[in-house]
Computed example of a mutant assay.
Amino acid sequence: MPTVFHHAGFRFFFYSNEGEPREPVHIHVVKVGGEAKFWLKPVRVARSNGLDARTLRALARIIAERSRLIEDAWHDHFGH
């Protein structure tokens, strides 16, 4: 599970086995008590558990700001 970055106690990462066929670029976010999956294009919540709407909006902003970093890390890891 490659970690792309940490922010405010959250870990932003991919699962190495993202399935076949591979889903579009996305990022998983986890912190004690909650987790979420976000699509990158456009940035939106795919699913979440234990995180409130305010936190999800804040995470979406962080992901949008760092979308290039996330996408580059995705392509570096998965080779596409």
Rank of each mutant, 00 (worst) to 15 (best):
A60W: 05
A73P: 00
V4F: 07
R44C: 05
W39N: 13
G79C: 04
R57L: 03
L69W: 05
I62G: 01
G9D: 04
R61F: 03
V4T: 08
N17H: 15
G19M: 05
G19A: 09
H75Y: 14
I63M: 07
R54K: 15
I63G: 02
V43W: 01
N49H: 11
F38V: 01
E71A: 09
H26N: 05
H28M: 08
H28V: 06
F78K: 14
G34Y: 00
I63Y: 02
P2F: 12
R68P: 02
F5K: 12
S16K: 15
Y15C: 09
G34V: 04
G33T: 00
A53V: 14
K31A: 09
H77C: 02
H6M: 12
E18F: 09
E65V: 01
L59E: 08
G33P: 03
D72M: 03
A8I: 00
V45H: 00
E65G: 06
V30P: 00
G50L: 11
F38L: 11
A64Q: 08
H28Y: 07
V45D: 03
F13E: 10
H28W: 01
E18W: 08
T3V: 15
S67C: 08
G19E: 06
R22N: 03
E35F: 02
V25G: 02
F38P: 03
I27D: 02
V43G: 07
D76K: 15
N17L: 13
A46E: 14
W39Y: 12
A64Y: 00
F78L: 08
H77E: 13
A8R: 15
N17V: 07
R61E: 03
E18T: 11
V4I: 15
W74R: 09
I27T: 07
N49Y: 10
I63S: 06
F5I: 04
Y15H: 15
L51V: 10
R47Y: 13
H26C: 05
P24H: 14
A46F: 14
A53W: 12
I27F: 04
I70H: 00
F13A: 09
R44I: 01
G50M: 05
F10A: 06
P21L: 05
E65F: 00
H28S: 08
I70P: 07
I62D: 02
G9Y: 03
P24G: 08
L40K: 10
R54N: 10
N17S: 15
V45Q: 05
R44Y: 06
H77D: 01
L51H: 14
F5M: 13
A73R: 13
K37G: 08
V30K: 13
S16G: 15
T3H: 13
E71D: 13
H6N: 07
V25I: 09
V30C: 08
K37P: 02
V25N: 10
W39T: 09
A8M: 10
R11I: 11
V32C: 00
P2H: 10
H77G: 00
S16A: 12
L56D: 04
T55P: 01
M1L: 15
E23G: 07
T3F: 11
V4C: 04
F10K: 01
F78M: 11
R66M: 03
R57M: 03
D76I: 04
S16N: 14
A46Y: 09
S67Y: 01
